[in-house]
Simulated assay, not measured.
Amino acid sequence: MAAAAPLLVHVESMQTAVPTRVAGTGRSLPIAVSGPPLTAEELQRRFRAVLYYRGAGGELEAAARERAAWVKESLSAALSDCPEMAGLAGRLRRGGDGRLWEVKLKDTGVRLVHASVEVTVAAFLEASGANRERKEAALALWTDVDAHEPDICAPFILQLTRFLDGGYAVGVSCSLLLADPLSLIGFLESRARKHAELQAQGMHVANPVIQYTRYLQSPGAAKRVKSASTLGAAAAAAAADNTATTVLFRAAGTPDHRALAVACVGKACEMLGVREPPRFTVMDRDGSEGLNVQACACAAAADGDQKPWRGQGHAPRLAHWREAGLEDMELEGSKPVHVSYSVSPCADEGLVIVMPAGGAELLISVTVPNNM
């Protein structure tokens, strides 16, 4: 029997969505690194989400082109309406010793990728486990942040991928130095609301011939920038992600985020039946716009206690990504049929992200290696 043809994702256009008005040019958001300087590998820590939507079937090429235009327009508007997320349109910049980092707000825009895949949504979702995760990485492309010239890299990418049956996927990859997952999800919800608002108002896209020439050509005339097999670089990145598992917790707010992180790492490892990693990194914000990145050692590595979360005065309880709301994010009147989430840490380390969740509660993401 002949081998099945490899699944290809065709990248048809790479564009930039810029804020519709100045949102924060000139400001910088500090990143305080406590511990060794950030390495090239640590700069690739990121959050990925992919939302799948079914199409009406037999969708016209013109409808797909119109959706692409609206996605760019609503993304630009959302960047202007969410000043707290202005960093998404900024760039990472490093200081001299590798410990001084910042997000420079330059209003340079975010990378927007338009792509297509030669399969239906249903067929794509039939795959399961690691097989689908390898393919899924090509629905939310990522370009590694260059440790020497980080300011030339796009640390936030949004990708719109069309399927054969008119369905589509919205995939995002975002550096955790720019935004935590909960903040990014809030921005995506804001963009969806802006998308619906602009369409309801019947607002026309400015300068459509100039901005969207590629999508106004005759069907099939757009040149493909490249065709990437999901078994290539994207699959390699997904394979690395599969070596770790993420568990979510909720807990009452506390100023001692490190102790809370230790408690959550211990509880996550006990639930998963793995040993605690010898080290982990805590990423959190202290109420200001700046980000703290703190390298820590697990208590178990020091005293052999495999349950350091006991008796610490913290009571984290299990949470789920669906509580963040992406499963209810409507686009064109429909909710996604599936949503996936992924946190990419560094090899052989734990990663804890502490996020304000409204009121006095915190949402804590704990990612630990599977092979400990």
Score class of each variant (00 low, 15 high):
V225D: 01
L184P: 04
A347L: 11
G358Y: 03
Q159R: 06
S227C: 10
P30S: 10
V354L: 07
L178C: 02
P278N: 12
A238L: 05
S334Q: 13
R317S: 13
L75N: 02
A169H: 08
G186K: 13
A130H: 11
G166D: 11
L326N: 05
Q211Y: 10
L38K: 08
T213C: 05
T281C: 10
A147S: 14
S334A: 15
H204S: 15
K104I: 00
V354W: 04
L248G: 06
D241G: 14
E41V: 07
P316W: 05
E332T: 00
T246L: 06
K226L: 14
A17V: 08
R91A: 09
V209W: 09
R285W: 02
E189S: 13
K135H: 15
D305F: 02
A2V: 12
E12S: 13
R322T: 10
Q15P: 00
D284Q: 13
A17I: 00
P308G: 06
P336T: 08
G55A: 01
E126R: 15
T161F: 06
T108C: 09
R134T: 15
A299W: 03
S340K: 02
S365W: 02
H257T: 13
A138Q: 00
P181C: 10
L139R: 01
V368P: 01
G273M: 04
E102N: 12
T39V: 02
